[in-house]
Amino acid sequence: MTPSRVSAEQGFTLLEVLLALALLAIAGMSVLSMSGESVRNTPVLEQRTLARLVADNQMTEIHLQKQLPTLSWQLAAGRA
């Protein structure tokens, strides 16, 4: 090998390094965006989970009473 060929094969060009950094920056921004969406959706998911648990408990109480509600059924005043 000649000395000029050895020096040309020793590393990356500036263009290759800049392109790799740009790709990493784009990937990092997309990951940050997705994690932000996840954090914003957490309270909504907590409320939905709690609402589902309450509804399941109400249905279990109705099932254990072995009495179907009438068409004008409403929650009893004593229970909330």
Rank of each mutant, 00 (worst) to 15 (best):
L45A: 09
T2W: 01
G36F: 01
Q58V: 13
A76D: 07
G28L: 02
L21S: 05
M34G: 05
S4N: 08
L32K: 04
P43H: 05
L75G: 08
V6T: 06
E9S: 10
L15T: 12
S7I: 14
T49K: 07
T42D: 10
V31Q: 04
L71P: 10
D56A: 13
S72M: 06
D56Q: 13
Q58Y: 07
E46G: 02
E37W: 04
T70V: 10
L15W: 09
A77C: 05
T49M: 03
V54N: 11
L21T: 01
Q67T: 15
K66I: 04
L21G: 00
S4C: 02
N57G: 13
A25V: 05
R40L: 11
L18I: 11
A22G: 10
S4E: 14
R52A: 12
Q10W: 06
N57S: 14
T60L: 13
L32E: 04
T13Y: 00
A80Q: 14
L75E: 15
Q67N: 12
G78F: 02
D56P: 03
E46C: 01
L71F: 12
E37L: 10
L21R: 06
G36L: 05
L23Q: 14
G28D: 04
T60I: 06
L53R: 15
T60S: 08
G78P: 05
W73I: 01
P43C: 05
G36E: 05
Q58G: 02
A8R: 15
V17Q: 15
L23Y: 06
R79Y: 04
Q74F: 00
L71S: 12
V54T: 12
A27R: 04
R48V: 06
L23P: 00
S38G: 10
M29L: 14
A76I: 00
G28M: 01
V54D: 13
L24H: 04
S35C: 06
Q47D: 15
H63M: 03
S72N: 12
L50M: 13
V44R: 12
T13L: 03
N41S: 11
L14I: 11
M1Q: 08
S33E: 09
E9Y: 07
A22V: 09
V44N: 09
A25S: 05
S35Y: 08
L18K: 15
R79Q: 07
S30N: 02
Q10D: 10
G78T: 08
E61T: 09
M29H: 02
E16K: 07
N41H: 02
V44Y: 12
G28A: 02
A25N: 03
L18F: 11
A77K: 12
A25T: 05
Q47K: 15
G36S: 08
S30V: 03
S38C: 06
G36K: 01
N41E: 12
M59P: 00
S38T: 12
A80V: 10
N41I: 00
V17G: 09
H63F: 06
